[in-house]
Design a protein around this nucleic acid. Sequence first.
DNA 1: AGAATAGTGTCTATCAGACACTATGCA
DNA 2: TGCATAGTGTCTGATAGACACTATTCT
Lengths: 256, 256
Amino acid sequence: MGNAGKKQRSPDAKARVGDKDEAAYLASYKAKDYPRPSVTVDLVVLSILEGELRLLLIKRLAHPFKGRWALPGGFVRVGDGFEDQGEDLEHAALRELAEETGLPEGSIFIEQLYTFGRAYRDPRMRVITVAYYALLRPELAVKVVAGSDASEATWWSLSQPGQPELAFDHQEILERALTRIRGKLDYSDIAFELVPATFTIAELRAVHEVIQATSYDPGNFRRRFNRMLTDGIIEDAPGHRPTSTRPARLYRFRGR
Amino acid sequence: MGNAGKKQRSPDAKARVGDKDEAAYLASYKAKDYPRPSVTVDLVVLSILEGELRLLLIKRLAHPFKGRWALPGGFVRVGDGFEDQGEDLEHAALRELAEETGLPEGSIFIEQLYTFGRAYRDPRMRVITVAYYALLRPELAVKVVAGSDASEATWWSLSQPGQPELAFDHQEILERALTRIRGKLDYSDIAFELVPATFTIAELRAVHEVIQATSYDPGNFRRRFNRMLTDGIIEDAPGHRPTSTRPARLYRFRGR
DNA sequence: AGAATAGTGTCTATCAGACACTATGCA
DNA sequence: TGCATAGTGTCTGATAGACACTATTCT
């Protein structure tokens, strides 16, 4: 171990120095001599369970911050650098998400959030993390189990006080994710990622209410909803959702 | 050269293996054995000159894409990794901006845009770039000169057809920056970063028009502007701006 | 029958867009 | 004096928030 620098150098680099043509130049490129940071992806995984906004946290089994709760994430695979440049960032995020939740890779919505790279944010070494947020429909969220590395995974409520102190700068990442999501909720389609495949108006309203931590007038919300209907963003779905009183009509997101 | 891997390892790592305490653990940490990508910052530097939206591009002097135009940027300094973890991402962006424009480091507005890390986006090796956008007031923009590395720097117009083909995935980065800026223009204060320190309503309107590539009714725009006045976002400034006809009142952004 | 939620309608304030109009300084 | 731009006022349509009201189903 500790031979990463060696492995990443093209084997016959020196031989081609001096060649003017670009292909040869690439082979002899020496930029790898600069120190490089480690790059990770971290995920703010959110869902709504039992009417509360919930965050998926993993208990760290190793130093640093051993025993503390942290966002799921891990190193981006960059291959050997030259012949194999490894996986895309989004792929790394989806892979880590699948590994740490046990869910299949498809059908999980993620979006890049921000990149956190403050020096000393990881005490071990320079680590730059590309943060994503993921939104899980409740049907999927309940299937989450601890990943193959046997680490503990738990849905913490953000709707109630008493979250644990997070490892690294993960609290800051979480807050930026919430701010972003709150800002995008009204003008984007992300709310539909937190609702079952077919849903009632009240269910969609509950998503908005839980995320914004306010309450909306049912009548006014319905009006906004009706505009989405006439705009073709959503459509009727067959059946009704039984409730404690009058059953509610079902709808379906038409996106994508 | 090629000794980056060696330099980044803590000298007495092996000696402390087995110690349970966290500090010792950090010293012996071996995560550096994973291959690491290079990390750069790239900047979409925009200003408005002669009524046109302009983008600062640098002509590449080296392979790859030698002779092609590219966004200014460069490697993030990460120090030796452990004792010295190097500079923050935003600092790297501000430093590169200063180096490549000759402008002083303060008083330039930048904001992180997105991180582009597709495999093979750089043919040499795996490079992940954290993109920022910078907005320069016209007074500053005219002072930009080619940086210390003597590379050619030019303001290209985005308001007219005929931009050059950009190096790497810089076209994609540019497009994301424009989309972001167009989206934020209405609800944020970024328009004030493209206008002189004191400005007229027509000048601010011109910024909006050039960026959105539309035209706004002067009367209606003035009404929006008046709301900003009563909200305290902007305030009167002394004097008038001479025009070809009736001089216009001056205002000043109150932010920060 | 009563309770609770689904679903509809109305009123008001705010704001954007269209557009007509007045004011002022320069050529 | 004419003209271009600065600056004001008015009308209309769309939308959000407050709130009163009707409809339907479960218990």
